[in-house]
């Protein structure tokens, strides 16, 4: 079955992104397809490569990147939410004239239409948030 996952909260402050990670892994293990994971609201903060949690803590951004690497899943960060919160890829760095970028590997920044499209294309939309 084809799933879309929506993540509304950032890592650490709220359990939502960990729940979403665990759900995504379990769905893949059960042989389902993850059409897209869409990061919205503070959820965009899952996609920075500049976090460095202590060794005995989970690396949430790194875990998403690993999943994308292993399973080729599409991790999409909402551009409007990202601009508000300072998540930047190379394209945004250029467009907004920023002096760097911080997007983690496996993530891409795109429009809200990607969430709507995920709702249309997927058989299930599962939302994790506050």
């Amino acid at each position: 079955m084809k799933f879309a996952i929506q993540v509304n909260e950032g890592p650490y402050n709220h359990e939502a992104s960990v729940s979403a990670l665990n759900f995504t892994k379990a769905a893949l293990e059960a042989g389902h397809e993850i059409f897209r994971v869409f990061f919205y609201h503070d959820g965009v903060n899952n996609g920075t490569r500049f976090t460095s949690p202590p060794q005995d803590d989970i690396n949430i951004a790194g875990s998403w990147s690993e999943l994308a690497d292993q399973h080729g899943i599409d991790l999409v960060i909402c551009v409007a939410a990202a601009q508000r919160r300072g998540i930047v890829d190379e394209g945004e760095q250029e467009r907004q004239g920023k002096d760097g970028n911080n997007i983690a590997s496996g993530f891409r920044i795109s429009g809200l239409g990607q969430l709507v499209e995920a709702g249309i294309q997927s058989e299930r939309l599962i939302v994790f948030g506050d």
Binding site: Y40, H41, A80, L112, G113, L115, V116, E117, G119, I120
Partner: peptide
Amino acid sequence: TIYAWESLEVVLIGAAFEQ
């Protein structure tokens, strides 16, 4: 919280998809 405003943004963008 920002949820109300950012969800309204989804509704507006979503309108273009003619669902």
